[in-house]
């Protein structure tokens, strides 16, 4: 696949965005996600209140794919309830694995659909899914607390 399918405007702009790149005040949960082979390293922080993700942000560094994916993910999950965010994470990971392919089904991922073609790039799959796996782990902690 061509570079123009990877480094799209949505991805390059989001990769440089600093909107969600900062620590948050009094996070209820945080989780660190690392891709040891390439050096992507993010710490995702969430503030979950009454089962709703009231605030989310990240610190760390990594490639354009991992940074953009994290930023777009945070846009998508802010204000959602934990179950909804988990469902979206599962759908995103399904899309990257090539298991969820129906465009209509993927629409609710909004800008995160920009990563669909990464499923054809084995070397970059881990970069795209890092933040979403990190989110799942953080939210599992959140669920434990809610219950």
């Amino acid at each position: 696949m061509g570079l123009d399918q990877i480094y799209t405007q949505v991805i390059t702009e989001n990769s440089r965005s600093t909107e969600h790149k900062h620590p948050i005040d009094c996070p209820t949960h945080s989780h660190e996600g690392v891709n040891p082979s390439c050096g992507d390293d993010i710490k995702l922080e969430l503030k979950v209140e009454d089962g709703i993700i009231k605030d989310a942000a990240f610190v760390g560094d990594g490639c354009a794919i991992s940074q953009a994916s994290t930023s777009i993910m945070i846009d998508l999950i802010l204000g959602r309830n934990v179950d909804d965010a988990k469902r979206l994470a599962s759908k995103f990971i399904g899309m990257i694995k090539g298991e969820v392919t129906d465009d209509e089904d993927l629409e609710e991922l909004e800008d995160a659909q920009a990563f669909k073609d990464i499923s054809h790039m084995p070397a970059r799959v881990k970069c795209a899914v890092l933040s979403w796996h990190t989110l799942e782990k953080a939210l599992n902690d959140a669920l434990d607390q809610v219950q």
Binding site: G2, L3, I6, Y7, S37, C38, G39, D40, D61, G62, C63, A64, I65, Q67, M121, A123, R124, C127
Partner: peptide
């Protein structure tokens, strides 16, 4: 301003194989 992994991907499009990471 560019992560090494992105550099390696972009070079790969030209057939240039380098290593990126730690």
């Amino acid at each position: 301003d560019v992560h090494p992994h992105d550099v390696a991907t972009i070079l790969d499009a030209d057939g240039v194989c380098i290593r990126s990471g730690h």
